[in-house]
Nucleic acid binder design. Structure first.
Lengths: 217, 217
DNA sequence: AGCTTTACTGACCAAAAGGTCAATTACTAA
DNA sequence: TTAGTAATTGACCTTTTGGTCAGTAAAGCT
């Protein structure tokens, strides 16, 4: 028999319920913001008594923090293991592409982060300091090395990163505006390619690179 | 004597008070969002009885709408009177520059719009449909004409506009993140030029243009 | 001056917010 | 089986919310 380490019904149901609650909370917080979503709404959405949520998460703040923590845990900043020897065009193209795919297909998390940052990032400050900042520092170094080796134009690498983030996340965070301006109801299958192409063209060419030959993924 | 058309004390004080209230509301809504800011906070900030706000603006919704209306009234979408005969590089460079200046110096309004769009733009839908959409259409036509005349690269003009909007607004809406990542407390005098330079370099070169010689404003 | 009308606001209200708690219902381990 | 512990939740609490309203003050008009 497979050595089960205590099936432990309690833990199982707790984790099941917590997931239910976190899913509902994630959706509501990203849709309505921290203040816009209420505990009773989350309770109703998760089909769980409100007191149960408080029992698991102590407070609304606690719930919100757990939602953010869970997102961060599954968060991939991308651009892993990039080194000076990699080809800038390929690396950046793939980064842009993956960010566009994320923005179009999973806008909720991006929007939750956006509304958090809009409010001054009270819960994300620590994350930015301990995770994003070192991550950025490292990428900036690689970008700088590429520039020093004349592989690409010399521009402020921070602003280059901000440019990539802003252009890609825009399609998640400002989806409502994009769709209204383009007179669409939702993104269609061709949009990801369209958006990736446009952004990659501008940014890559803009820093002196060529869009790499594609390349199925 | 100057022909005064009724100094009318009533109207004067009403307008003065309304301005007080709208200023306070604009600040609080942009800082805390619609749900995060309460009527009593606005009242306290504006140093006016809460009932007075309700008297002027009927409801919280009414106040919020008035705040948005006032912003829109003073809103300049920029790129006015652009024609096919203008020089794309100059026009776009100036547009980017003006948007960066706005983002760095007046981030509040940008953030209010951002949080409004994040929530699905309930109050801005109409504005987008009746104002932004036609505005965009017109600019898109000019951009397209420039492309057809081989004055710049052929890319989707909508996405080009989104790129300009996203990169510039980013410094207002995501100011907290930018500052945390760059380890700064606030933007300094050199930042506007830095940011403008970086964005303009990427975008203009990215669409086959050269940054125009500057040019004091 | 006095009368009318509009502007204002303190006191109040119902609803909803986040949160507590005592009582009940599971589980688990002996 | 059962005692002990942890999980669960309905009822309840306080505070705050957006909003009303009746009474008062202040113009405006003749």
């Amino acid at each position: 028999m497979t050595t089960q380490i205590k099936p432990n019904k309690k833990e199982v149901t707790r984790e099941k319920n917590q997931k239910l609650i976190l899913d509902a909370a994630e959706q509501l917080f990203s849709q309505l913001g921290y203040d816009g979503a209420s505990m009773s709404m989350v309770a109703k959405e998760a089909q769980v008594p409100k007191a149960n949520i408080l029992y698991y998460f102590k407070s609304k703040d606690g719930l919100y923090e757990s939602v953010i923590d869970r997102i961060i845990a599954n968060w991939n900043l991308g651009l892993d293991n990039v080194t000076i020897n990699d080809d800038p065009a390929t690396v950046l193209y793939n980064y842009i592409k993956s960010k566009v795919i994320l923005a179009v297909n999973q806008p909720m998390q991006s929007r939750l982060f956006a509304s958090e940052i809009l409010r001054g990032a009270p819960y994300l400050q620590n994350y930015f300091r301990t995770n994003t900042r070192p991550w950025v520092k490292q990428k900036v170094d690689v970008l700088q090395a590429w520039m020093d080796a004349d592989k690409m134009d010399k521009i402020d690498p921070y602003h280059l990163l901000f440019t990539i983030w802003s252009t890609t996340q825009y399609y998640a965070d400002f989806q409502a505006e994009v769709l209204l301006v383009m007179n669409k109801l939702e993104y269609d299958e061709t949009d990801v390619a369209q958006i990736t192409q446009s952004i990659a063209h501008i940014i890559l060419k803009g820093i002196g690179l060529k869009i790499p030959e594609q390349s199925e993924t």
